[in-house]
Simulated scan of single mutants.
Amino acid sequence: MAPTSVERTLGILLAKVEGIEKSIAAGDQHRAIVHRRVDDLVEQVGEISTEVATMKADVIDSKKITDEVKQWKQRGIGALFVSGVAGTALGGAVVGFIVSWWDSILRVLRSA
């Protein structure tokens, strides 16, 4: 017996419904994959956020140390300047004393 027009239409509709069901199932699988990837990204971003917070703390500690070393350097340069001025003054005084001492000796020798 040949299928009637109604049976043929029902067959076509049934095939289309099965195709829609397969499409919905494929969409569900795709959405599940997307959700899993998004969950993975959220986890990775959380880990990166934790690492950045740790790095910020390290950078703050490093900055404190760097600032302290800069202060030491400035103090050292100041100390060298003061030492240079004091050394120059002391050297000048010593040279002045020696010149005056030699003048006295030469005067005594010339007068003799």
Rank of each mutant, 00 (worst) to 15 (best):
A2Q: 04
A2S: 04
A2I: 03
T4F: 00
T4N: 01
S5Q: 10
S5M: 11
S5D: 09
V6C: 07
V6N: 07
V6Y: 13
E7Q: 14
E7W: 01
E7P: 02
R8C: 04
T9W: 08
I12P: 01
I12H: 03
L13Q: 13
L13H: 15
L13T: 15
V17S: 12
V17D: 07
V17L: 14
E18Q: 06
E18Y: 09
G19M: 11
K22S: 03
K22W: 04
S23L: 12
I24S: 03
A25V: 04
A25D: 07
A26M: 10
A26E: 08
G27D: 08
G27Y: 01
G27S: 15
D28M: 08
Q29S: 09
Q29R: 09
H30Y: 05
R31Y: 10
R31C: 13
A32I: 01
A32S: 05
I33S: 11
I33G: 08
I33N: 12
V34D: 04
H35Q: 15
H35T: 13
R36D: 12
R36P: 00
R36K: 10
R36C: 01
R37P: 00
V38T: 13
D39I: 00
D40S: 09
L41W: 01
E43R: 10
E43V: 07
Q44G: 05
Q44R: 07
V45G: 01
V45Q: 04
V45N: 09
V45K: 05
E47H: 05
E47N: 12
E47Q: 08
I48A: 05
S49G: 15
T50H: 07
V52C: 00
K56V: 15
I60H: 04
D61I: 08
D61R: 12
D61S: 09
D61A: 13
S62G: 05
S62A: 14
K63F: 02
K64H: 05
I65Q: 10
T66I: 11
D67K: 07
E68C: 08
V69L: 10
K70Q: 12
K70G: 04
Q71K: 08
W72H: 05
K73V: 08
K73D: 07
K73L: 06
K73Y: 10
R75F: 00
G76V: 02
G76Y: 09
G76H: 10
G76R: 03
I77L: 14
I77G: 01
I77A: 06
I77S: 06
G78V: 05
A79P: 02
L80Y: 08
L80S: 09
F81W: 14
G84Y: 00
A86M: 12
A86S: 14
G87N: 13
T88H: 03
T88C: 08
A89N: 03
A89K: 02
G91L: 06
G91K: 03
A93K: 10
A93Q: 10
A93N: 04
V94R: 07
V95K: 04
G96H: 10
F97D: 01
F97W: 10
F97N: 12
I98L: 12
V99D: 11
V99T: 06
S100E: 06
S100Q: 14
S100V: 00
W101E: 06
W101A: 09
W101T: 09
S104W: 13
I105E: 09
I105K: 04
L106S: 12
L106K: 11
L106G: 03
R107I: 04
R107T: 12
R107P: 03
V108K: 11
V108T: 14
R110V: 05
S111P: 00
S111E: 13
S111A: 07
A112V: 10
A112G: 06
